[in-house]
Design a protein around this nucleic acid. Sequence first.
DNA 1: GACTGTGAAGCCATTCACAGCT
DNA 2: AGCTGTGAATGGCTTCACAGTC
Lengths: 209, 209
Amino acid sequence: MKVYKIPEATVMRLSIYSRFLHQLLEDEVNTVASGDIASGVGVSSAQVRKDLAYFGEFGTRGVGYKVEELYGHLMKILGLDQNWNVIIIGAGKLGSALALYKGFEDRGFKVTSILDVDNKRIMKQIGDVTVESLDLLEERVREQGIKIGVVTVPAAAAQDVTDQLVAAGVKAILNFSPRVIKVPNDVILRNVDLSVNLEVLSFNLALQK
Amino acid sequence: MKVYKIPEATVMRLSIYSRFLHQLLEDEVNTVASGDIASGVGVSSAQVRKDLAYFGEFGTRGVGYKVEELYGHLMKILGLDQNWNVIIIGAGKLGSALALYKGFEDRGFKVTSILDVDNKRIMKQIGDVTVESLDLLEERVREQGIKIGVVTVPAAAAQDVTDQLVAAGVKAILNFSPRVIKVPNDVILRNVDLSVNLEVLSFNLALQK
DNA sequence: GACTGTGAAGCCATTCACAGCT
DNA sequence: AGCTGTGAATGGCTTCACAGTC
């Protein structure tokens, strides 16, 4: 399993393939061809095979892939053969919604801490987690072995809490704030910019006229 | 202003540049060079110039760009020189959070309808919008001139509500459900897949070990 | 016959490097 | 002298097309 440089787009698709395979598993489908996956998720079959080829040979020529086996491989590749504790910084509407989001739990992400600076939010109960003070950041990261942090604070506070997460040893950050934030090279950063997504739609709509 | 095929990545960056310029405006900065924007948002200066070059010549050689002027151009390009009414389908935690998200309002997106199938959610007040029955979809889309729909329903219902949005005449859809959905060619679709984003982090973390 | 795995080709986006203005 | 605008070069991802295997 030589892993040199995998396109990010490939990783995102693997995640989508794995969910599609999960559906097939529930429908008790045993075998699947690259073309089936392709039409199921809206890409080309060559793309599916190429994506998988980065990680090994999982199929049988003339036949296809065993659903259960391929699913297992993908989950392992995606690092989902283990559970991840996640800390959310920012207990506003968005942070709360994410904390309760079933899609995370289903895939092995457990929100074990939710922190905020606002006293009105501290002690609030979100699912089975209690919102705590931002002061506890380092302590919670350490004791819960947290590698993944989610930032859902206002733009003005985003860089500051990010720096705190990094200082506490968090290695991967999912940023929902509408601000470009900077992290050291060894920390993985992804941005989910809600406004940008709507604006891409707006751009394309405006084009059509 | 010849617009043939603009890379999606360029559009996303324009959105980010525009927000950066807005910050500069507030700080009363008058002029900005491509290198300043670049370091502000974490791309190369050549990238900034190339992105802008798709749409015209906005700068002055030897000087840079007038902040206010460039900002205006970008907002126009992004279709943000007008307001957009937005309908949200799914009044769960995520749908509610998005309905209240300030970042949308700030950029001219107004959530004018929130619909759900669940009677327990109907009549609930979210901000100044009342959750209504999914049955009203077509009526609301028509009377509010809605072009943009946001889907925050469970995976199993995603394709169904998408089809209803399309049938009602919605031209752009932002899908938050963890399911691949299909739309006709003339409808613009973007997916914000929250789990996929976490899984890309997980993949990269798992690699490092 | 059917479908995988993969080198080669094609395509698209980014970076380079410099001519052109101010 | 400084910074933009842009053709050319580069790099990377996707598609093609087919040899290899069951």
